[in-house]
Nucleic acid binder design. Structure first.
Length: 574
RNA sequence: GCAUCGAUGGUCUAGUGGCAUGACUUAGGCCUUCCAAGCCUAUAGCCCGGGUUCAAUUCCCGGUCGAUGCACCA
C-alpha cells in the first residue's frame, strides 16, 4: 500500500508543481471536492474532450448541445433526482454517528424501509439500537440528505432550482427540438460536455470524487425494436475484456471476446450497447489509458436501475483507488422520455409512418346530440361518452348514468363501420446513454503515463503522454544561449507555431535540464538548434520516450513535427 | 459529519516559548558544443481564527485542508 500511495502522491505532486491541477482558491484554504485545472491541465483536458468529440460528433454524427447547469425543479422531479437522489439519514443522539436510516431498519429485518417516509422511518428505528455504539436511538430524527445543490432562481427566491447532477437531462428535455432538427427520424443522438454537480458527503479521493466535475454524455435515441447498430460492422471484430454478471457471480475473470460474439451469446444486451462499449474502449486507449488496466464490468441486477435492460461500467485500474468507474454505458429504455412526458404533459414520441398505410376497420359511434341534448340536458355529454365506450348494437343499449340504469334507444345514435387508413404509429424511443467522467479519465491518463527511470544515476521523471493529449507538443531550444543560436531557435519555434502546434521555447541553463523539464510535463518532442544548424540549416529532433535524436532540415521540420503529433508517422520511421 | 494523525519558502525538510535550518526548484549573471554539471546573486516560508504568556511557528481551544478508519458513493 505504501508504494501505491507513492504513485498517487507523486502524480499529484507533479500535477500541482507543474500546473496541471491545483486545489481551488488556495488563498482561502480550498474546499474539498473542487479543483482548479492549471495551464497544462486545462490544455490537456481540452485535448481529451476534443478527442471525445472526434468520435461522437465527427464519427457518429451526434451534434453537441449546451444546456444550463442550473435547472428548474420540474426537470429533476421528472428525472427522479429530487426523490431518488437523496439518502434518508439520521444521527445517533448518543454517539453522534451519521447513519443511513433505511439501512438501520433493514439491518433488523424491517422490510420496505427504503420506501418509507422520514416520519415512518423515525418511528420504526427509534426503538432500535445504534449499530455504532449500541445505545437505543430514542430521540433520533430521520432527514433527507439530497446530493443535489439547491438554489433559487430570481429575486425573492420564489423559484427553486438545482445545479444539475448530470448533463444527460438536457438532451432529454430538448428531445422534441432535437427530433425536429434530425428531421423526425430514428435513430439520432445528441451529446453534451459540461459541468455537473453533486454535493458529496465526503469527497476525499482527490480528483476521483468531485463535487463539481465534467461529464461528456451522449443520449442516443433508438427504435425500441431496432437495436442493431447501423454501423455495427465497425466494431464487430473488436476484442476487449468483458466482466459479465456470470463471471462476477462465479468469481471468474473477465473474458476477452469480440463484440459480435458478445451480442450473439447474449452477454451484451444488444448491438447498440456493444458498439459503444467498443467505441469507449477505443477512446480510452487513444487518450492513453493502459489497455491492461481497463475492463468493462456489467452491473449486477441489484445495482442496475430497475428500468435499464443492460448497464456496463468502463473501469480503470488505479494503483491508489483500485478499479474506478470511469464511464457508464446503459440502455435506459423509454424511462426518461416517459418520465418527462408525465411531468411536463408534453408528448415525447416519434411518429413513424408505415411503408404503406395500414387499413383498419373501425366502428364509430356518433351520438345524436340534437336529440340527446333536450332529453338529458346537462348529462348529455356523459351519455354520449358512455355510448362511445359501449359500442351499442342496433337494438339500443342500457348505460350506467351516475349509478342509474338508463336505456338509450337506437334513434339517439348512429353506428357506422368504416375502413380508416392508419398512416403510421407513435412510439417512444429507447435511450442508449454512454456517460463519461472526464476528470477521472484525466487522472487515469496521468497515472498510467507516469514513469520514472534512472539515467546516469539521476532519476528521470517522465509523463509518457500520447502526443494527442500532451499539453505542450514541441519544445524548441538553442543548444547554448549565444552565438546567434537563440535567434535561429525563435524563428524555428515560430515556424512550428504556424502549423497550429503549441510550442515552448526555452534557452535557460543547461540543455539537459531543459529536456528534463519537458519530459516531466509530457512534451513528446524537442528540437535543438546547434552549431551545425548554422552550417547546413538542420536541427536535431529528440523523441521523449526513446531519448533518441535525428537530424532534419529546418524546412521539413514543421510538417514533420505536425505529422508526428497527429500520429501519422512515428519517430522510429524518421 | 464523527474518530485518530498531520500541516514550516513552489517542493522536500531541520528545529524552537525569545534572530527560522538546509537542499532542490525558480529568476538574473558567469560558465557550458546535446540529456537535471559547476560558481555567484536574488526571490520566497512557520495553514487560519481565538486563548494562555512580557513574548506563541512552538502550549491550549475552534476552524480549514489533507491522510487513515467509520459512514456514504445516482
Amino acid at each position: 500500500m505504501s508504494t501505491m500511495s507513492d504513485v498517487y502522491d507523486k502524480i499529484m505532486d507533479l500535477a500541482k508543481r507543474r500546473g496541471f491541477i491545483w486545489p481551488t482558491s488556495e488563498c482561502y484554504g480550498s474546499v474539498a471536492g473542487f479543483i482548479d485545472y492549471g495551464p497544462l491541465g486545462s490544455m490537456m483536458k481540452r485535448r481529451i474532450e476534443n478527442i471525445w468529440r472526434q468520435f461522437y460528433i465527427i464519427q457518429e454524427g451526434y451534434y453537441e448541445i449546451e444546456c444550463p447547469t442550473i435547472g428548474q425543479e420540474d426537470i429533476f422531479i421528472a428525472s427522479g433526482h429530487v426523490k431518488g437522489f437523496s439518502d434518508k439519514m439520521c444521527q445517533c443522539p448518543a454517539c453522534r454517528e451519521y447513519l443511513r436510516a433505511d439501512h438501520v431498519a433493514e439491518g433488523h429485518n424491517i422490510s420496505g424501509a427504503s420506501t418509507m417516509s422520514s416520519e415512518d422511518l423515525t418511528r420504526v428505528i427509534c426503538t432500535l439500537p445504534c449499530p455504532a455504539c449500541g445505545e437505543a436511538l430514542g430521540a433520533v430524527e430521520v432527514f433527507n440528505f439530497n446530493l443535489m445543490f439547491e438554489t433559487t432562481i430570481g429575486p425573492g427566491s420564489q423559484r427553486k432550482g438545482y445545479l444539475r447532477p448530470e448533463t444527460a437531462q438536457g438532451m432529454v428535455t430538448d428531445f422534441a427540438r432535437l427530433l425536429r432538427f434530425y428531421r423526425d427520424k430514428l435513430p439520432f443522438g445528441a451529446v453534451q460536455i459540461g459541468k455537473s454537480y453533486r454535493n458529496e458527503i465526503s469527497p476525499r479521493q482527490g480528483m476521483i470524487r468531485l463535487r463539481e466535475f465534467t461529464q461528456a454524455e451522449a443520449e442516443i435515441f433508438v427504435h425500441p425494436e431496432k437495436k442493431d447498430h447501423p454501423c455495427f460492422e465497425r466494431y464487430a471484430a473488436y476484442e476487449m475484456p468483458l466482466f459479465g454478471i456470470d463471471q462476477q457471480v462465479q468469481g471468474g475473470d473477465p473474458v476477452v471476446v469480440t463484440m459480435e460474439t458478445a451480442v450473439s451469446q447474449g452477454l451484451v444486451a444488444n448491438q447498440y450497447v456493444a458498439y459503444y462499449l467498443a467505441l469507449t474502449h477505443q477512446i480510452l486507449v487513444t487518450i492513453g489509458v493502459d489497455p491492461e488496466k481497463l475492463r468493462f464490468r456489467q452491473h449486477l441486477p441489484d445495482e442496475r436501475a430497475h428500468y435499464a435492460v443492460d448497464c456496463w461500467d468502463a473501469e480503470i485500474l488505479s494503483a491508489r483507488f483500485g478499479w474506478v468507474e470511469t464511464v457508464g454505458i446503459a440502455d435506459r429504455t423509454d424511462y426518461d422520455l416517459l418520465a418527462h412526458q408525465r411531468q411536463s404533459g408534453e408528448r415525447f414520441v416519434v411518429f413513424l409512418p408505415y411503408e404503406t398505410p395500414r387499413k383498419e376497420r373501425q366502428v364509430r359511434v356518433s351520438p345524436n346530440m340534437g336529440a340527446l341534448g333536450p332529453r338529458f340536458r346537462g348529462k348529455a355529454k356523459a351519455v354520449a361518452d358512455a355510448l362511445c365506450r359501449h359500442v351499442p348494437g342496433p337494438e339500443g343499449v342500457t348505460i350506467d348514468l351516475d349509478g342509474e340504469e338508463v336505456f338509450i334507444s337506437p334513434d339517439l345514435y348512429g353506428v357506422k363501420e368504416m375502413v380508416v387508413e392508419i398512416p403510421g404509429e407513435e412510439i417512444t424511443p429507447h435511450v442508449i446513454e454512454p456517460s463519461y467522467g472526464i476528470d477521472r479519465m484525466i487522472y487515469a491518463v496521468l497515472e498510467h503515463s507516469y514513469d520514472e527511470e534512472i539515467v546516469e544515476d539521476e532519476e528521470r521523471r517522465v509523463l509518457r503522454l500520447s502526443p494527442a493529449v500532451a499539453p505542450v507538443q514541441v519544445a524548441v531550444f538553442p543548444l547554448l544561449a549565444r552565438d546567434g543560436l537563440c535567434e535561429i531557435a525563435v524563428s524555428v519555434s515560430d515556424a512550428i507555431k504556424n502549423e497550429g502546434l503549441l510550442v515552448e521555447y526555452d534557452d535557460s541553463g543547461a540543455i539537459g535540464r531543459r529536456y528534463r523539464r519537458q519530459d516531466e510535463i509530457g512534451t513528446p518532442f524537442a528540437v535543438t538548434v546547434d552549431y551545425d544548424t548554422k552550417e547546413d540549416s538542420t536541427v536535431t529532433l529528440r523523441d521523449r520516450d526513446s531519448m533518441g535524436q535525428v537530424r532534419i532540415p529546418i524546412r521539413e521540420l514543421p510538417a514533420t513535427v505536425r505529422s508526428l503529433v497527429e500520429g501519422k508517422v512515428v519517430f522510429s520511421d524518421l
